[in-house]
Amino acid sequence: MMGSLILRTAARFLLPLLLLFSLFMLLRGHDEPGGGFIAGLIAAVAFALYLFAFDAARTRQLLGVDPRLLLGLGLLAATVSGLPSILLGEAFFTAIWWPIDVPGFGEVKLSTPLLFDIGVYLLVLGAIMTIVLALDEAEEE
């Protein structure tokens, strides 16, 4: 493969950093710039970098699950996040909040928009990895 020693070493160190940064972007997204889409892109970039440095087989192994599963789970989470509001008799996709107190940390606001964002995150990651892996595997053949 084309990966040089420098790229491989850098990819090893950058991958966890990028993934951590993507989670940070995902969670700060509700009130500040960020959110599921951009975080999903960053996570996908992390894996794509690994793909460039190594190969498709190792990237799949690192990903652990098939990207189609990520796609499905993401779509499911994003769609389901609209349902609680219907069950409570409100309009589809009305935001519902469940604040909980975590001792020693403060208040954590769980909500349906958070679930939606996580869904978008997984969806974007899954979709991009499906495409990038398919292209790369077609090249390797």
Partner: peptide, 24 residues
């Protein structure tokens, strides 16, 4: 509110997501 308007959009999305989850 009228949930019946959203159902024809919602059902295929959930069905599509579920069949992606069970891709195997």
């Amino acid at each position: 509110m009228n949930p019946d308007v959203a159902l024809p959009v919602l059902i295929p999305f959930i069905a599509g997501a579920l069949s992606l989850v069970f891709y195997r």
